[in-house]
């Protein structure tokens, strides 16, 4: 079984996780830039983070046989802090880079005017750079957030079929599907979706355009949730082809819209700019 986790924050995970993910079948991942738990206060700390997503993290992933790409953006929560908004001006020089396969995560957090501005601007950046966009739906007031998100996408130059709407659930899946977007589901231990509910949604809405991710990060989360969903699908009577479609071909098709997806893991030497992940190494 081959698995593509289209949304996972490996910066917050350990090499044990990489090892377990590979053993479970994960061969490709996309790491969206996001909030770090501790709010940032200057654009420079975003740039160091972006550089890590483009440099150190793909190197780490390759050590475990996993292809790593990223999506870059100013996340909606920090878009509310005027100290961070200059990140928007610097994004164009990052969005041209090989490993960037979408603009994201963008979307709404508290649905403020500053978030409206950042979302619209970054959808435009995606259109300009011929990239798809990973748009998450907010934790709070989710359905209202989804409708407002779809309105902003419709007003942008980015086609709806270049947009992956993430963190969907039973109350939001229909509107996102009707709009023609790609449908993302984050499977968590005790929030968002779980395996059984994911299977129920797949049974009701079909596997077309559906992507399942672990969204694992520094919070309570599980980087093996993709595999657990695959197992639950098989148990519920889905075919191996269905599983391959949801957990491999759909994410490949979506991020492939960037024209930049490279799924062969490049061989790496043992160091990255002189640093090894092997303790005691250089």
């Amino acid at each position: 079984m081959r698995i593509f986790d289209p949304h996972i924050h490996m910066t917050s995970r350990t090499t044990d996780d990489y090892e377990a993910m590979y053993a479970a079948g994960v061969r490709a991942i996309v790491e969206p830039s996001f909030w770090l738990g501790q709010p940032r206060t200057s654009p420079a700390s975003f740039f160091d983070y972006f550089d890590a997503l483009l440099g150190w993290e793909p190197f780490r992933a390759a050590q475990y046989g996993i292809a790593h790409h990223c999506t870059l953006a100013l996340n909606p929560k920090e878009a509310n802090d005027p100290r961070c908004t200059p990140v928007l001006d610097a994004l164009p020089r990052y969005l041209v880079k090989d490993n960037v396969v979408a603009v994201g995560e963008i979307g709404y957090d508290s649905m403020t005017p500053a978030e409206d501005t950042a979302l619209a601007a970054q959808l435009q950046l995606a259109a300009t750079h011929e990239l798809p966009a990973l748009v998450h739906t907010p934790h709070r007031d989710k359905l209202a957030g989804l409708h407002r998100t779809l309105d902003v996408v419709r007003e942008s130059d980015l086609p709806l079929d270049h947009v992956l709407i993430d963190h969907l659930n039973e109350t939001t899946v229909k509107a996102a599907k009707d709009a023609g977007c790609w449908l993302g589901f984050s499977v968590y231990p005790d929030t968002k979706m779980d395996e059984e509910r994911m299977v129920a949604i797949l049974s009701e809405y079909g596997p077309e355009q559906v992507l399942v991710n672990s969204a694992a990060d520094w919070g309570r989360s599980d980087p093996l949730k993709t595999r657990k969903v695959a197992d639950a699908m098989l148990k519920a009577g889905f075919t191996e082809d269905d599983v391959d479609r949801v957990l491999w071909r759909n994410p490949v098709a979506f991020y492939g819209l960037s024209g930049r997806l490279v799924l062969d893991v490049p061989g790496t030497d043992a160091t990255h700019e002189g640093n090894s992940i092997l303790r005691g190494g250089a």
Binding site: R140, D141, K142, L143, A144, N169, E170, T171, M193, R197
Partner: peptide
């Protein structure tokens, strides 16, 4: 309205 939507979302998720 927001609280009602949230309650609905919780219920839909079991």
């Amino acid at each position: 309205r927001m609280l009602g939507d949230y309650a609905h979302e919780r219920t839909a998720a079991g």
